[in-house]
Design a protein around this nucleic acid. Structure first.
Lengths: 211, 211
DNA sequence: TAAATTTGTGTAAAATTGTAACATTTAATT
DNA sequence: AATTAAATGTTACAATTTTACACAAATTTA
């Protein structure tokens, strides 16, 4: 079973499917058809079946997919069995919201440390996570075996923060700041900018108006 | 000049270019080469030139692009001249952070109202925006000429909220909840899920480990 | 004037998704 | 029990979107 090298888009969808599936479980739904899952995600049933085919899972034919089993299989693809630890850099409004929003939602992904430079935040538990001074970064990352970082620091510090993170061996970065980052190839970088998302929406709304 | 129907990815990049360009201006840089812009965004110079070609702008050959001019042209594509008003639905941690983070950053996009059902929030100014009760939604949307909504409400209410928004004539939705939404075709929907982004990072970190 | 640099753009390639088709399996129905 | 209907697994191909390649034209610099 070649679970490696799945298309990036497939990974995204698998993550999304899992959320929907977890929701199904809560509602007591134990089987789901490909076309149901497709409808919930605004895609075609073939796409769903293809994605699921790629991860090597088979349904109970004619009854749809076993929800719990599918959740497990997706987990075996997406999750790192031993769990991965995450740090948040920058505990402003956004950093705190992300931390609060995220923590506890994924058993195999835990935010275990936060960093800032504001003396009022250092050595306090904020949004459920202890906040350290940036100068402690190397030690804490090492000690807590942190491999992923979320950057929510002020934009002008972002690249410098990224450099430090790379230097201490971080393997994946999720960038919430407004500046694009430069990192070596062996570090996976996911950029996310809310403003771009908003502007995209605005553009298409504008298009709708001018017709 | 056919500015309509630009590829979605191009719109994203234009938004990102603009941010970088604004930053250049601040630093006193008035001209920029395609390969410089490309380097800052980890893409190829051809991609940059192609995007700029699509919006019908031409550089001073051999001196690079005029930063201010390019900002203006991108604005003429992405922005709605008269401005667009935005509402945030759900003023929990995330809603407040988004509002605080966003407001003031884009002159043509303004968050002008927030909605919640928590009595402690109603009729208060939160993160710089007045918070109304959900039952006032139709009236406020109408009165304030709001065409875009950000949903940051609890997941189980998201679809119901979306329905209400569609009913009152919202044209674009940015969904920050964990449930995918179903909206009519004439409403532009942008889904964003942090957890999926995180899981994507985690997946690729995992891949890196198992090699 | 020659060399080097940079842009603009036609064309090709790659990646992704959608459509159609169909054998196969299973559940339900008659 | 046989038939019908529904759903999956899979392939092939078309359509679309996105990115890369190649190169002429323009312009600066040496």
């Amino acid at each position: 079973m070649n679970k490696a090298n799945l298309p990036e888009k497939t990974i995204e969808r698998l993550s999304e499917y899992r959320r929907t599936l977890l929701n199904c479980l809560v509602k007591g739904k134990t089987y789901i058809y490909s076309h149901e899952l497709a409808g919930l995600h605004n895609i075609t049933a073939v796409q769903v079946r293809r994605d699921i085919m790629l991860i090597g899972y088979s349904s109970m034919k004619k009854k749809g997919y076993n929800v719990q089993e599918l959740i497990n299989v997706i987990g075996s693809i997406v999750d790192y069995e031993a769990g991965l630890n995450v740090a948040v850099i920058g505990m402003g409004n956004l950093g705190r919201a992300i931390t609060a929003y995220f923590n506890g939602k994924r058993p195999k992904l835990n935010i275990v440390a936060a960093f800032d430079v504001d003396p009022n935040k250092i050595n306090r538990v904020i949004s459920g996570v202890n906040c350290y001074h940036m100068k402690e970064l190397p030690e804490v990352i090492e000690r807590s075996d942190i491999s992923i970082a979320i950057i929510s620091s002020p934009p002008d510090t972002a690249n410098q923060v990224a450099e430090q993170l790379v230097a201490v061996g971080i393997k994946g970065i999720l960038n919430f700041t407004t500046v694009p980052l430069a990192v070596p190839e062996n570090v996976y970088l996911e950029e996310y900018d809310m403003i771009t998302s908003m502007e995209k929406v605005a553009y298409f709304v504008k298009q709708a108006y001018s017709r």
